[in-house]
Design a binder for these strands. Sequence first.
DNA 1: GAGGGTCAAGTCCGT
DNA 2: ACGGACTTGACCCTC
Length: 336
Amino acid sequence: MTTFDQTINRVGFACKIQKSHDVAVKELNTSTTTIKWLTAQTKAKSEQRLWDLVKQNVSALYHQIQWVGALPHNQRMFRITSDLLPAYTHSDWLAFYFQPDMTNWLERNLLECGELARALDVRLSFHPGQFCVLASENPQVVENSISEFEYHADLARYMGYGKTFQDFKINVHIGGKQGPDGIKRAVRSLSREARNCLTIENDEFKWGLEHSLELVDTCALVLDIHHHWIRTGEYIEPDDSRILRVLDSWRGVRPVIHYSCSREDVLVDHDTATRPDIKELKGLGFTSTSLRAHSDYYWNHACNRWAMSHNDWADIMCESKQKNLASQKFCNTALV
DNA sequence: GAGGGTCAAGTCCGT
DNA sequence: ACGGACTTGACCCTC
């Protein structure tokens, strides 16, 4: 049982609804602050600021879900920003977020967000940031990373998710020097809800698809097809045997893959009807780093066709600078 | 209002 | 050694 309709082939986008002429963006915007600023204020003032941010951000989340829920059914997928509750995992503000007034408020209001998402059939996820390194060789970093991951799991739980395997996705990279074994160790310390939500994504440099596949029995695997291309030069095809194993890791739930594209201002004169050839590009002096940066839009039609050919077996999370503007355009133009 | 420096945290690449 | 990149530039201060 899942919380979204699995017969829909979705294309989604991440974190932020980009301004366009017909959108009132203000109520859709989340805000944040810094630890430094909070620390410089009186307790009353910093707590007031955090309360204001919590209310603004949860309200923004509700409106974001509403907005995504009004899109065509096959575009109802959205990654929520990690900045929803600023400073949640900083030790100075832990108590603030666990006071009864706050937990009651979050329970009530985040549940409404979750219920709205389920009613509108919006598939939701999180992607904790670069500081969440569950497989770090530094035990302190692992401990902090588990807290960071559990913060996202708390949010999912408040929203009414985490109850069944992959009713909600919280995606991280393997990261760190411990690799897949480090992930297996860290998973033992995660809550049940966190384990239900955890997905692992292959990265461009250190831990690729062959490493994440070691975790097929641990959690669901997110295939990032652009990372895989950066790492190997290969445009992986839907009938590849490794994809069957990725599919297995989802245990019957419809998988999610990630799709991004090298920046258009890096590959300035590149033919938009031909997929970039990484060997050729490296011969011309392009570095992996320069090719991994995300484009504003999905400018390469050949890549788009290839990416869309994966939509039969997986939902496609778009990672591009122009967010919904790019994913909508991709969705509407990349016909297989 | 525009512009620039700054921001909790990890890890890697490229120069 | 240091800047940039990553799921995301936003925010605060000064002028």
